[in-house]
Design a binder for these strands. Sequence first.
RNA 1: GCCCCCAUCGUCCAGCGGCCUAGGACGCCUCCCUUUCAAGGAGGUAACACGGGUUCGAAUCCCGUUGGGGGUGCCA
Length: 417
Amino acid sequence: MLRWLGLEWDGTPVHQSERGDLYRDAASKLVAAGAAYYCDCTAEDVQARNKAAGGKPGYDGHCRDRALEPAPARAVRFRTPRDGRTGWTDLVRGEISFANADIEDFVVVRGNGAPMFLLANSFDDADMGITHVIRGEDHVNSTPKYLMLQQALGLKTPEAFAHMPLLVNEQRKKLSKRRDDVSMADYRDRGYLPEAMANYLALLGWGPADGVEVRPVEEIVALYRLEDVNASPAFFDQKKLSFVNAEHIRALAPAEFLTRSEPFLTRGASARAALESMVTEVQERVRTLAEVEPMIEFLVVDEPEVDEASWTKVVTKGKLVTEMLDATIERLAGLASDGGGQESGWNPAAIQVAVADAAVAAGLVNAEGAPQLSKAQGPVRVAISGRSVGPPLWESLATLGPERTLARLRAMRSRLE
RNA sequence: GCCCCCAUCGUCCAGCGGCCUAGGACGCCUCCCUUUCAAGGAGGUAACACGGGUUCGAAUCCCGUUGGGGGUGCCA
């Protein structure tokens, strides 16, 4: 998924599950140095004592000076300094610091011997030579612990931290897996381009100085600076994502658009051929790749499904519908038989002329007697596609071909008897 | 509760003491173009949370208030 987004990584992945011994060793060093200690308090014990003490949460340091020996079920806790502060300069937030006294003695290795994530994380980062720790704002509070651990272990701390603004939903709550659409795979499957995704995501919390928001990812990479990221949470706006996606789709070379659309075509070669015949028309209209097939479906299916709303709008409320259909059938039939059955006359320009003629014959004209193409095309469009909106009509008819076009026009005409 | 962070149009971003009668983008609305829909063009709608300072001068600096978010596990 990172690769889909165009993100690469250095080195080989490190699996924390295979490095348990390393973390336990580190914890032992901590204990030996007096920076950590064994604790046999259960969660219930701690809770009970806290309740008795007035209900304040957190570990009370019960075992801090008991000098317990290692034993099964005994956890290792880090001995937090009682005074002083721990802080850092955050690339996006500036100076942040915590009073050490506010940080409880946190568990580093569980009673069952399993190291805690925080220990593994801070150890691995130093071990792998991580220079920049870039993560969500929700990690701010654990950063002092991370720092304390590395310092106590004598490890090198990262050059810089950047705590990015959280992405929030309409309720202004942090995006969550359960509630919100956060799956990249999902966006990919819904027809969003990876470059559009990367582009839009970069725009949350940051903006290019020149104000050009939609642009190639390489440019964003060149322009992006963590120091310029703002610190307030950002709403993930699907509407704007759609816009950005549409822009990136339009920026594609037609051949590339075709290739990218391929996975979304479920109707095989005929769908591909249909799309090929009117790529640019479709490309310009679609906001996601998932919208491609519905737009050309009428060219592929035997009988297009009739959309109720379209029928009502164009047929029920329309005027001179039967007249228009009759006249159109006549002209197009003539056009189809022109040139002794050759299809040379069946092209968008000729079709437009024929339909315009039909409009005049049907009486769909304006005050000057010119054909009202906008009204005239309605019945024809519904007849061939079942819908009142779609790609340009002349091109659509040209691609559909005379036989199917006439058959559909006649079928609709008979429905109106 | 305690700790940390945040606060400019509905949304995202710009603004980092005077150029701001606050700019751009998405959305929405109007008009133009137009064979529908898109695209494109021209307009419009709409914001510096509040209160104190500092300063000749604050959206910009400081303090407080309010509001919002995040964190507070022997979860990752």
